[in-house]
């Protein structure tokens, strides 16, 4: 089983190599740190209204924003978002082109690493800690401010 996984991962890396001529333009990015809970009064603060559609796909009903970073990102320079109970999440811009931006999110607290390509204006919502006591932390990333 494990060798199958390794082979698939290697194959995927080969497929995922950046195409030639990728632009490396700096990109304004807005990252927010959110906590989702199963318990407590269900609700979404007004500032998170733009995420309603995505957040409602999860089992968490109560949301709060705990932090925000707005940065102009350049490729391969990570932005670190501190988690309230220690640890941090690293967000790195891999590349940005006219129609798409690729981010790498590294979240050791959930032992997860992801690489996501989105069109400008779309938002990535990623869980960055495993659920504990009915709550979990998320980051949301939007390219283009």
């Amino acid at each position: 089983m494990r060798s199958e996984w390794t082979a698939a991962w290697v194959a995927v890396l080969l497929l995922a190599s950046a195409p030639a001529g990728a632009a490396d333009a700096p990109l304004p990015v807005r990252i927010r740190l959110l906590q989702g809970s199963r318990q407590g009064t269900p609700g979404l603060p007004p500032g998170l209204e733009d995420l309603r559609g995505q957040l409602s796909t999860t089992a968490y009903v109560r949301w709060e924003q705990a932090g925000e970073v707005q940065a102009t990102m350049v490729p391969r320079k990570p932005v670190s978002v501190a988690l309230p109970d220690g640890g941090a999440v690293a967000v790195t811009l891999v590349e940005s082109r006219a129609g798409a931006a690729t981010f790498e999110v590294s979240a050791p607290a959930s032992r997860t690493q992801s690489r996501v390509t989105v069109a400008p204006g779309k938002r990535i919502v990623q869980q960055v800690t495993a659920e504990r006591g009915g709550s979990a932390w998320f980051v949301t990333i939007k390219a283009g401010g």
């Binding site: 997860t112 990535i124 990623q126």
Partner: peptide, 10 residues
Amino acid sequence: TSDGPVILVG
């Protein structure tokens, strides 16, 4: 989703 991806961990 139409607004973008949601990534969850179990």
